[in-house]
Nucleic acid binder design. Sequence first.
DNA 1: CTGTGGGCATCTAGCCGACAA
DNA 2: TTGTCGGCTAGATGCCCACAG
Lengths: 733, 733
Amino acid sequence: MVGIIDLNTTEEDETTPSSVSLSSPSSSSASALSASNLSPPGSSASSTVCLELWHACAGPLISLPKRGSVVVYFPQGHLEQLPDLPLAACDLPSHIFCRVVDVKLHAEAANDDVYAQVSLVPENEQIGQELKERKIEGDGEEEDMKAAVKSRTPHMFCKTLTASDTSTHGGFSVPRRAAEDCFPPLDYSQQRPSQELVAKDLHGFEWRFRHIYRGQPRRHLLTTGWSAFVNKKKLVSGDAVLFLRGADGELRLGIRRAAQVKCGATLPAQCSQQLNHSTLTDVVNAISMRSVFNIYYNPRASLSEFIIPFHKFLKSLDHSFSIGMRFKMRFETEDAAERRYVGMITGISDLDPARWPGSKWRCLRVRWDDMETSRHSRVSPWEIEPSGPVSSCSTFMAPGLKRSRSGLPSSKHEFPVPDGIGVSDFGESSRFQKVLQGQEILSFNTPYDGVDQNRHLSETRRCVPSSLGSGIATRRNGAEGPVASSDVSHKGIGCSESFRLHKVLQGQEIIPRSPFRRSPTSNDVSENGCFGISDGVQMTSSRNGWSAMMQGYNTHMRPPTQVSSPSSVLMFQQACNPISNPSPAYNLSDHEEQGIGIQSWFRNSETCDGKRMSSHSEHICRRDDQWGISSFGVSRDHIQHGIAQSTFRGGHDIVTSCKSSCRLFGFQLTEDRHVANKDDDVSIPATSLKPGSSFLPHVGEQFHLKPPAITNAVGSNCTKGILQQHPENYHIY
Amino acid sequence: MVGIIDLNTTEEDETTPSSVSLSSPSSSSASALSASNLSPPGSSASSTVCLELWHACAGPLISLPKRGSVVVYFPQGHLEQLPDLPLAACDLPSHIFCRVVDVKLHAEAANDDVYAQVSLVPENEQIGQELKERKIEGDGEEEDMKAAVKSRTPHMFCKTLTASDTSTHGGFSVPRRAAEDCFPPLDYSQQRPSQELVAKDLHGFEWRFRHIYRGQPRRHLLTTGWSAFVNKKKLVSGDAVLFLRGADGELRLGIRRAAQVKCGATLPAQCSQQLNHSTLTDVVNAISMRSVFNIYYNPRASLSEFIIPFHKFLKSLDHSFSIGMRFKMRFETEDAAERRYVGMITGISDLDPARWPGSKWRCLRVRWDDMETSRHSRVSPWEIEPSGPVSSCSTFMAPGLKRSRSGLPSSKHEFPVPDGIGVSDFGESSRFQKVLQGQEILSFNTPYDGVDQNRHLSETRRCVPSSLGSGIATRRNGAEGPVASSDVSHKGIGCSESFRLHKVLQGQEIIPRSPFRRSPTSNDVSENGCFGISDGVQMTSSRNGWSAMMQGYNTHMRPPTQVSSPSSVLMFQQACNPISNPSPAYNLSDHEEQGIGIQSWFRNSETCDGKRMSSHSEHICRRDDQWGISSFGVSRDHIQHGIAQSTFRGGHDIVTSCKSSCRLFGFQLTEDRHVANKDDDVSIPATSLKPGSSFLPHVGEQFHLKPPAITNAVGSNCTKGILQQHPENYHIY
DNA sequence: CTGTGGGCATCTAGCCGACAA
DNA sequence: TTGTCGGCTAGATGCCCACAG
């Protein structure tokens, strides 16, 4: 391991399982990664801004194209971002294959927003064909950078600022282990230990803070200098700061503003936006001359990426998207965590038939299950993961469950599916997730019991007040019976139950991938079910013919049915049924042996959870590794191994993350004893609801662009944190 | 007069002549202007920012192309401003004729810098030919806008902030007459009159200030709210604020930063800069398609304008620039006044022969008399005014004067001139000006004495310490004798002396134009001397053939030798010899009758003083009226009339401007009794030098980008103000 | 462990006239 | 006329702990 220190090793209170969950079950994968000899990617790419800091500030979902790789550039999407661009009569195709000549990382001088300058040179159309043929190794090549970044980012933490942190009254309360991990050690023998910290921000500006350790009980604080920083950066509670100690020992400092301020992204002060102005005609020029042009990409201000890695684009063509198909899509919540939204395709058509006929840019019209506004009513195929009729569901789901979807308003466009494998399961789970979002922490430790889970689960669900939404909850309750009975009727009860439960936790981003799906039959079903058969409205072809060619490539693209590695299944089952084999999950020394750091572990769970429902194992980690940066950096079966384990534990830990807003790589640092307390009754969550917190969707008025200095509504404690994760009326982008 | 109120009419202490000089001798011209029925130019042009405020913030030298006019666009100059533009292989000609479709005024959100968005559409090359043929009326059309702006800007003042103004200790001290002119009247019957002022900045943001009238003696102050404004705008002493009360009575507020911050213009925060990024390829596109493209022009950040009005470009082709030719060029000093630098052409060549062969952009290599750095070592022909051998000098300059230039290091490249009219006179004056820059206020009232001036002048010069610069001063002193004697040996002693003295005052921007120059003989000399005869290296032709065509048009362009209007001569003589006819210069009621406001009067003196040495009267006011906006807005003989008078009085007043930093339209508001005090001895200035103020060029270290809150070195008083006007090591651009 | 708040010392902003340039 | 200063005060800053979740 290169410079990664496991925070947990220094802790004395590791008896709480949630703390354990911070450790690294996928350590073997990570160490395998760091062992792989990667070329340092940051040398010239981070010319302006520290690479690690940039990525830390960009957030977990953001990835960048790798230099030298081939991407698909969508002028249409580019144009969308330019508010008042004089519509130069550009006669560009809807997408252009380009090679990434360079990637420069920058930060806005005004607000520290990170953005990237991507230099592209247009490629000829043959590049697609060529790449297609050597696609496999191309994919393999692209799994390095992010992992390399991670391995070189030993010590960092990210804390969402509390009201106290941002008030003028006091300083910044540093989470204990964050201070111990990132800051130089204090001389605790002194009565009042203190030191001066110097941290460079994105622009290289040095900020100085007095770091003291005082109070009863003792705690780490940044006092002098902190207020100046808050003022200069215009930080408000809800924003996050992140400290990062590089390999050179230098402290770096970034900020990640709450999602609210993204609304201000259209301000003229946003130079990265402005820089794009009239770049489009550059493209016109560059294409004819095969010269370089620059794209400025502000990941936190952009609605959608308009530079898509080639292989991601290619893969999106694998799927035959049809109306009625359900899908998932990842977003970032206000507190920098990610969550997944579920929706359904309601139409496939050109966004702008006049100017961009046949473009796939946002060609899918969708409706979301829990976003009621019309924003984001269109997505591009590569943005979503089909989560429609997944064949493996049928192995333990009762057919009767399908009926439950009839009560869902979103099922209007459902299409008949070949063999009874409907979208109901995911529709159901997504509804349930919605229910959870308004609630206090639920005792999700129940699946670990391994006994009598069904009763607990049923009770949990019944805790949902019937006032949820126009009788849907009650109807859902009516469908509950078959679910439980179907679970019980299967042999692998522990796994199936945890699977279902984790699906429920989608709001916290964890959905375990069922190993059962790996059976050849389930694969066949998947191939011939929703994904393989195009029984809905087909996507229109891109006018340059590429799309059709790509689609014809569908089956060829797929590797032969993969045999899952035994270790993967084993690890998953271990995690899935801790009663039968608790030590891997709870043994403190486990992760130490494996030598994995918290950071990379979390990244893993973040990275891969979106792939679990895809029909092929090769799709695992596809979304976040889109730019060829693997969280693991290991061969594919290792990845599967890691996922199987980390998925489960990630789900566990994400629940605990509600307790605190301090996190590593966007995830919570703090463990919560309640979560793993096996004696807790499942009914507790309902009773522990804060008075005033509502089960109904939150109205957007709670979220101000600039919240008052002291506002409990923003990120002040666990309850609010969960509530914030449910932006019914508030939209992140 | 439309809305112009003369500040002086309300004053009781008008006995001081310098106060008189604030009034408006050229009022008849101005009123003629305002009478002319102009289409309001600001309606759509000021869509974003108040037109008057924009111009006030931009500074006196800045003018903008008029919508519908034809300009010459220099992609090369545009490219120069873009720091890291990927050099797109643009195959553009060095200059492109364009029509101005629109001009939008903006201000940077970050720092309130004003900039303009100029929408251009390429014209065919014939437009040049067409315009050439109707050039005269085209010129006439273009003399409206700035005048219109001025006539609609009734009440405004601009004050350079003092250390006290910017300190946190107190508020903003409002000059009395500024407050009385711009602010709503206070109820002086109260013991402590106060009111709240609301002023909108460039972005329309409202700032509120408490305006009080207190202290002993009473003075106007802005207290509450002022500090917030200073902090938000990051104002430091030396910056200037300007208040403007529009016709609607609304108070507006702008800032004009000290020239220092221009160094920060390359910051990424400068969106206007960034907006230009890759616009160049827009041009490539637009030219082929004849479509509109946008240029973002930040007048206070740009080194040079790269959009030149057509007629200005045309006129620059009139001159056959030759090596050794001396010229003048206007700059803006740190305290927003303008000054002229004098230099000599040392070479004529392509700036970038490879990429822009034959381009006239900065085709002139120059050396400045008093700027020792290599910056600005190249200028474009239209930026400068030839000031070479002016024939009129010979009428009252002794031939022996020429010898004085032998001691000048800048005369190395001097060329022989046809009839003994050399560049020495201007070389001499520019050297002397340099001497003055390091000094306290000199008693420049001496020329008005009309008697015994030569002795005074000689003494004044001898006050210059010999330590000035490597023996140059002594050598100059050696040349002093002939100068004085030549002056005495002429009949028109009063005029010639004042002429010479005003030349000395170039740092304060006033050089009277000698009426003697108007004689036909002097015109002939001028035509055949330096200007008409191309005895030096000729400018290379532009590759598209336009330049050659234009040059062939040289003599055609010139109107027949113009007979100067009698009134012009009369006025000048009046001004030149106040002893013989003092009333027009000092009579208070004079300007009232003529009804001219201070603002337009000052603008006049600023605008036109650069033309006095040009060989043709039609060249008067050419430079500042480049965009077709006349300060007078009247026919040409009126202009001459106005210039002849305002020139002199401007010279007078600019001297007083050292005393105070409050000004109208960049000029001082305050009168200085000392200036007109005829009994003052000329030796006083030398003795009144502050201890510590140096005659040597100031080193740039005195000027910080962000000076400390309290720094006497920056604009705190008169002495410093003068010193600041001498940026030996500090360069404005 | 850490967010919040009370207590309290200190600093600063900001208002005043005095004074002098 | 106005720039700067000393005096003064109210409010903000910022450090401390206690307390509680």
